[in-house]
Simulated assay, not measured.
Amino acid sequence: MAFEVPTVDITPYVKGGSPEEKAAVARAWDDACRTVGFVQVIGHGVPDETIDGLKQAIDDFFAQNMDTKMLMRTPRGVNRGYSPPKSESLSLSLGVVNASLMNDFFEAFNVGLTRADYPGVDLPESEYQENVWPDVPLFRDRVMAYFAEARRVAETLVTIFPDALELPADFFADATTHNTATMRINNYALPPGTVDLDGELRGMGEHTDYDIVTVLWADQVKGLQVLGTDGSWNDVNPADGALLVNLADNMAGWTNDQWMSTLHRVKPPVIDGRIERRRSVAYFHGGRPDAVIAPIPELLAPGEELHYEPITVAEHRKAKLAGSRGGRLNTKAEREAARVRASAG
């Protein structure tokens, strides 16, 4: 059977559909999460003009010269600002060592929620880091306009989850109070000579996402590949008008892998000796830093083996980021690493 990412129309949750309409969405969502872990989401309600503004912001920032972009690079441990090519290796977040370390060739710019987004609440700065902003006209306004929309979509999805899992409607409310969020703007077009165009070229190494759910806008350009249950890597592009959504590690932990945190990577094609440009923007929706991720007893079958030990949202993210951005092998991702090693290619 050919690999296919299911499409789910979430309009009933966005515009207040009937209980029957919402139930149909919840069933479709549950099936998609159990079989693929990636979903083409339509009916999300993000305005076209907001996405157009985002694309302009991406182009304006990455068109700057490298010296100017490097002024926005933050110190190690700060998940904000600019990341230059070959400064990260996503596969290390899984405990997988590649031929050379820190060789993912994408460049990126990160923004996220800060303590100012939750006035009057005592929150750790390490989990709600301050943003840095380039001197690019309208960049901040355009990026944050889309950020607000992506956050709304993610929060809508989190209201679908308990319905799909047949849990109380407020089941995830406590774990997502004062939620964290990071949005990563990625660029895969680099000047000639920046990378060697060989067979091992990697835009972004194999990885799962770290938090609850990821909302992705991307160009309709090949590059994103998703690991199927048969061990094959499959090209995935967003459908017309769709956002690609994938589950992240926290949902796999809560559901004991009944819902899939699917491995994916980026390998943009090389055409006529050049990398075909690809842009993407991933909004990573996280939980409260001290929320505990462990299999939910109500979802377990009698005698079902537990795949995960309890861990907090912050502890899990720290271990993953130590690999991808700090260059330290994550030794607590045995299940994901085994899937990468068993994959074809």
Rank of each mutant, 00 (worst) to 15 (best):
A148M: 06
R27S: 14
V266G: 11
Q258D: 01
P134K: 10
S91Y: 06
T74E: 14
Q64W: 15
G120V: 07
N131C: 09
S232R: 15
A218H: 06
D257Q: 02
W259Q: 01
V143I: 15
R325I: 03
I51H: 09
L243K: 05
N330L: 03
A301F: 03
S343P: 08
A242T: 04
I10N: 09
W254G: 02
A314V: 01
P6M: 10
A23D: 13
L71F: 03
G199E: 14
Q225R: 11
E155N: 11
L299K: 05
V136T: 12
V213S: 04
L299G: 03
D9K: 10
V213P: 03
G120Q: 11
A342T: 03
Y210K: 05
A338H: 05
T35P: 09
P75L: 07
F284S: 01
P302I: 01
M144A: 00
G303K: 01
P134Y: 08
T74D: 02
G327C: 06
P238K: 12
S87F: 09
V132P: 07
E206N: 09
G53D: 12
I42D: 11
A28N: 11
A252Q: 00
S87V: 02
Q258N: 06
Y128Q: 05
G95E: 03
G45I: 05
V270Y: 13
H207L: 03
E304R: 00
L138K: 14
L123A: 07
W233C: 01
P84L: 04
A24V: 14
N110D: 14
N330M: 04
A344D: 13
D170P: 05
V25E: 08
